[in-house]
Amino acid sequence: MTVTEVKPDTTRKIPEHPKSLLLRMDRMPHIWCSRCGIGITVGCFASAMEKTGLSPDDITVTSGIGCTGRVAGYVKADSFHTTHGRAIPFTVGLALTRPDLKHVVFSGDGDLISIGGNHFIHAARRNQNMLVICVNNFTYAMTGGQLAPTTPVTARATTAPYGSFERPFSLPTLAISAGASYVARWTSLHIRRITDSMTEALQRRGFRFIEIIAPCSTIYARRNKLGTGLDLMKYYYENSVIDHNASVDDLDIGFQSKIVVGKFVDKDRPSYGKSMHEHFRKVLGNKYQPPVSGKMEIDKSWSGCTESQDTTVTDEVQS
């Protein structure tokens, strides 16, 4: 056997990347730095999609702003790259109007927990139907390494040049206390565990949260003299402890301390939509009209939605 070297989109003899059905390979190489962990989580997501047997037409992916905020742009599904912090409320709208689909929020710690923190706790409280995947790299990477609500104490950031002294959020603790129905944490080294968690969580309803600790090689690791992303991957190997029954007190992450990972919550609790439906049915009886969905009454073989309506020919473009 010999090494086969493949260039993107070259001769037809070379098989496509196995994930090219799920990822926008026409946009590769992506924008993430060398030794960044985000790409790994996206690969795991693609694997989880394969394992669930879901088609990309069964899901939407929404991101906010930041490095992980770009994930939506690389997943070959209907995908939304929204504003900073607002991926969760945007998805609230998607999920309530298209309850037939799986809705995934894929974003970073700064986006979801700092500027979007209020949305995070309220969506968890209401058990809104979505899977939230947070890639936590302990910093604002795209803007150059500022202090995040996850930055461990003593870690340095451009806006904490003498090291952080703020207590960071433990994201699983936050999600658990706000009422999420599924909560797990892994590091980007736990590729099979991440994939399994994503697979499992994709099949659940309600607010599901997976935190993935991932290396930011260029910004966080360098500023904190931790080597490269590869060194951080080795650190995860040596310092992550799987404990599904960990108490919330064990879930805090100190600077280069041990990281407790695992699946902490997996419970059945009615989602917002289900609670709403059941409540109104009980209170209003047959006066209640169940919510209409944005799903169109057309089967999958259809090739256009508006054949019966006036449409303008898109070939004639003025631009």
């Binding site: 929404t62 939304f80 929204t82 504003t83 912090g85 607002r86 969760i88 409320p89 945007f90 998805t91 609230v92 709208g93 998607l94 999920a95 309530l96 109007t97 298209r98 209020n118 949305h119 309220h122 209409v292 969905s293 944005g294 799903k295 169109m296």
Partner: peptide, 15 residues
């Protein structure tokens, strides 16, 4: 902030 974001999502959802 959440209200308008949800409205945009809801509109993309088809309503």
């Amino acid at each position: 902030l959440a209200s308008i974001a949800a409205v945009l999502g809801g509109s993309w959802g088809g309503l």
